Simulated assay, not measured.
Amino acid sequence: MNSATYLASQLAKSFSRSLQERSASVGFLPGQFPVLVELWNGDGLTQKDLLDRLDVEQATLANTLSRMERDGLIERKTHPQDKRKQVIRLTDKANSMRDAAITAATAADDALFAGFRTFERELMLEYIRRIIGNAGKV
């Protein structure tokens, strides 16, 4: 198949499966990983902040956050300046799994890039970033 959108969809599924194999023992799901990364980079974001950064549907993020709260990965607190908003903070459990989660994601990447030379991998990542940038212009 020569459709980039079809192949991108298959690549996303492959990454998710590869990450799922490695994330279960750490204690997170592949769909939670982007939220964890954003919060590890700056804890205390609002749901709107996460929506803007992750470019996902409101309902998808709401479901992900509910599951993460249920699983003890996040806590929601009332925003100090705006009582209508909630600040999302990582729990100690989520913070303690950071290194293992990043190791799992790196292993998932490494499995998908098996047989690639370093420059091929870097070039592929640059192409993916460019495609994502172009998609944001559509």
Rank of each mutant, 00 (worst) to 15 (best):
E75W: 09
R70F: 13
R121P: 00
G27C: 01
I74C: 01
R129V: 04
T106W: 04
A8K: 08
L123K: 07
A100V: 02
N2L: 13
S23F: 06
T106R: 11
L73I: 02
F113K: 00
L125R: 07
S25D: 10
P34R: 03
L90A: 04
P30M: 01
A24G: 10
R130I: 02
Q47F: 03
L51R: 03
N2Y: 13
A105F: 06
T5I: 12
R76Y: 06
L19N: 07
L112D: 04
A62Q: 13
Q47L: 08
E21C: 09
K137H: 10
F116G: 00
E120T: 03
K77I: 12
D52N: 14
A108G: 05
Q47E: 15
S66N: 15
V37D: 08
R98A: 11
K83Q: 14
L73P: 06
V26E: 01
L19I: 06
E120R: 02
D71L: 09
K77E: 13
L73E: 00
Y6T: 07
W40L: 01
N134V: 07
M68P: 03
S18F: 05
M68Q: 02
G31H: 11
N134E: 15
N41S: 12
D71P: 04
G27E: 08
R84P: 01
A4H: 08
S3H: 12
M97E: 05
A62C: 11
T106E: 10
G44E: 00
G115F: 05
L65T: 02
V37A: 09
I128V: 15
A114G: 05
S14N: 13
K48F: 10
W40H: 08
D92P: 09
S9P: 00
R76Q: 15
T5F: 11
L125V: 03
K13P: 03
G115H: 00
R129A: 08
L123G: 08
V87H: 02
S66G: 14
Y6S: 04
M97I: 15
W40Y: 15
K85P: 01
